[in-house]
Design a protein around this nucleic acid. Structure first.
Length: 550
RNA sequence: GGCCCCGUGGUCAAGCGGUUAAGACAUCGCCCUUUCACGGCGGAGACAUGGGUUCGAUUCCCGUCGGGGUCACCA
């Protein structure tokens, strides 16, 4: 009896690996094309780090005419939730990212390198496991969890490395006959890789992002096929990324310590190793310490958070691109109007140390992104968001024509406003422009310097009587404000007032503040002339009359 | 604890043997024909630390300290 017989005994129905090698041939892509993948568990949850990976992968594969695929790693049933795949696909789609290949929902997929769900690939893994057994590079292990636990305790007591390796790998030296006998007797087992590495020997690996890294060779006989017949991550990674002809494995750096193992697996399987790109995860600062941004503790870890807050997808993508490649920011300043897809992403420029997630910076990026929107884009996106998350805002926006006028205030010029960072800011920023909201609330406004009601009334009534005309152009309107100030004994210029404060009770700015507060209820607003143009005569009169009638 | 990685202002970061050590966000001040926002100008603020190597180290080497990752039939 030899390895071949043992392999046949364990996997009698597995196909020869040449079948799969032919079924999934090298891709016919142009030189330099990157094939990469996003490979989440079907938990339905997408982490910002995962989104960043998608943003980067999408950019990279687009600019090299490569392939970006979605593979679902569902070899651990505990991680699975209902509709998990669809939720992931949709969450990523919310950010404008779609996959070239892979799962599109729980059951359907596209592309010819599938199945793209690992639980549907059991036969493939078994074929390769069988191959390894035939080669004498894998073997059945009959160790019970109790035996393993006992082994670990001994190792800890002896203060030596834990794990299944060397002399501790009791079942690796079982003869083929002994192993066959146990199998026939029905003893439960799993399949382990037989490592030929040595802890004494060093290997050097070149990571695209991290550069050269030295480690000891792998010598662990890790499990490759679990009791449920499904592969472990390590084995699935090797088989899938090879068969899907992935060129770049871009993943979080929590995997770097597995590199020696993966390298040995690829070698034993006769696979060409992909380029490894290990990026640092997004961090969070807490009590002066850094830690990975956490699904449990940090709401901003979930991609859905940004969607709910109404931070535009484009803003989030630009921010993540910025974390991914710090030279993106410089490029963006130099090319403010180019689409992000024009930016040449370079993997090797990714940071080796983790960045603390900076929501303030993200919001700043977002303000810039939003400031470039046209009023129509603005309206459409805000409405879409409001329909989902803010009923009151949605009802305000039902008057499209009027809403567009509001969104047009100080927009589209060379110095657009940058006061909106997210859609959840919008309602507060525009609500006073709607008469039914504004007039139904009390008018106990907080005025500034001029806060005497009689004086306020005097200013307003004179203004409405002698100066107000909705058809005035901005300069005329402005001059009239000065005339009004003059007439009431205030300085027509601020400078004039500052030079001679005793001579005046205030200046034109104080007068216009009275009008501003009366019309909007606020001391700080966008350009008052534009606001009045949008409001129109009737609304202005109503608003002023409320104050005059007090 | 073993192994691996990282350590430039509050944050993100250029620089990689000789620089007045960029830039962005945040912060502070001034200016910007009336607020706010924008914009402009300016300020404060950093090479973790100790040894080497070198004519010269933020840049190279070693130690220390600090931070992170990983050591599952989870991914």
């Amino acid at each position: 009896m030899d390895y071949k017989d043992l392999a046949d005994l364990i996997f009698p129905n597995a196909k020869d690996i040449s079948y799969y090698e032919e079924k999934y041939p090298e891709r016919n892509l142009e030189e330099g094309a990157v094939v990469t993948r996003f490979a989440p568990s079907p938990t339905g949850f997408v982490h910002v780090g995962g989104l960043m990976q998608c943003v980067i992968n999408r950019q990279l594969t687009k600019q090299t005419n490569g392939v970006f695929l979605l593979r679902i790693e569902d070899t651990d049933q505990k991680r699975e939730i209902e509709n998990g795949v669809s939720q992931i696909v949709n969450a990523i789609k919310d950010f404008g990212i779609e996959f070239d290949e892979g799962m599109i929902n729980e059951t359907e997929e596209k592309g010819s390198y599938g199945p793209y769900k690992q639980s549907k690939r059991a036969d493939i893994y078994q074929a390769y496991a069988k191959y390894l057994i035939e080669q004498g590079r894998a073997y059945p292990c009959f160790a019970t969890p109790e035996e393993l636990e006992e082994m670990r305790k001994k190792q800890e007591a002896a203060k030596i490395r834990t794990g299944y390796y060397g002399v501790w790998a009791t079942y690796r030296n079982l003869s083929v006959e002994e192993a066959a006998e146990k199998i026939k007797a029905g003893k439960p087992y799993i399949i382990r890789f037989k490592s030929m590495g040595s802890e004494e020997k060093k290997i050097r690996h070149h990571d695209v992002i991290k550069g050269n890294i030295d480690f000891p060779e792998n010598d662990q006989d890790i499990v490759i096929i679990k009791a449920d017949g499904l592969p472990t991550y390590h084995f699935a990674h090797a088989v899938d990324d090879h068969l899907m002809r992935v060129t770049h494995v871009i993943r979080s750096d929590e995997w770097v310590s597995s590199i020696p193992l993966h390298l040995e697996l690829f070698k034993a399987l006769g696979f060409k190793t992909p380029k490894y790109c290990h990026y640092a995860p997004i961090l969070k600062e807490e009590d002066g310490k850094k830690r990975k941004i956490s699904k449990r503790k940090d709401p901003e870890a979930a991609v859905s958070y940004y969607h709910e807050e109404g931070i535009p997808a484009k803003s989030v993508c630009e921010y993540l691109m910025n974390i991914g490649n710090s030279n993106f920011e410089g490029w963006r300043r130099a090319n403010p109007d180019l689409p992000m897809s024009e930016f040449k992403f370079e993997i090797n420029k990714m940071s080796v140390s983790g960045a603390i997630f900076d929501i303030v910076k993200l919001l700043d990026v977002s303000k810039n992104v939003i400031s470039k929107y046209t009023k129509e884009q603005m309206y459409n996106e805000v409405l879409e968001w409001a329909n989902r998350y803010d009923e009151e805002l949605a009802s305000l926006l039902s008057n499209k024509e009027y809403s567009l006028k509001i969104f047009g205030i100080e927009r589209g010029n060379s110095k657009p406003r940058k006061d909106i960072a997210k859609w959840s800011d919008v309602k507060d920023a525009i609500i006073y422009m709607y008469d039914d909201k504004f007039l139904s609330q009390n008018a106990d406004f907080e005025y500034a310097k001029i806060n005497n009601l009689e004086e306020i009334k005097k200013i307003l009534s004179l203004y409405m009587e002698k100066y107000f005309d909705i058809n005035d152009d901005k300069q005329t309107w402005f001059d009239k404000m000065k005339d009004l100030a003059d007439k009431l004994g205030y300085a027509r210029e601020v400078k004039e007032y500052k030079q001679n404060q005793e001579a005046y009770p205030g200046h034109v700015g104080d007068i216009s503040t009275v009008l501003r507060v009366s019309l909007t209820g606020r001391q700080n607003t966008p350009d008052l002339y534009e606001i009045m143009q949008v409001l129109g005569t009737e609304s202005i009169q109503k608003r002023v009359n409320r104050i005059l009638e007090k």
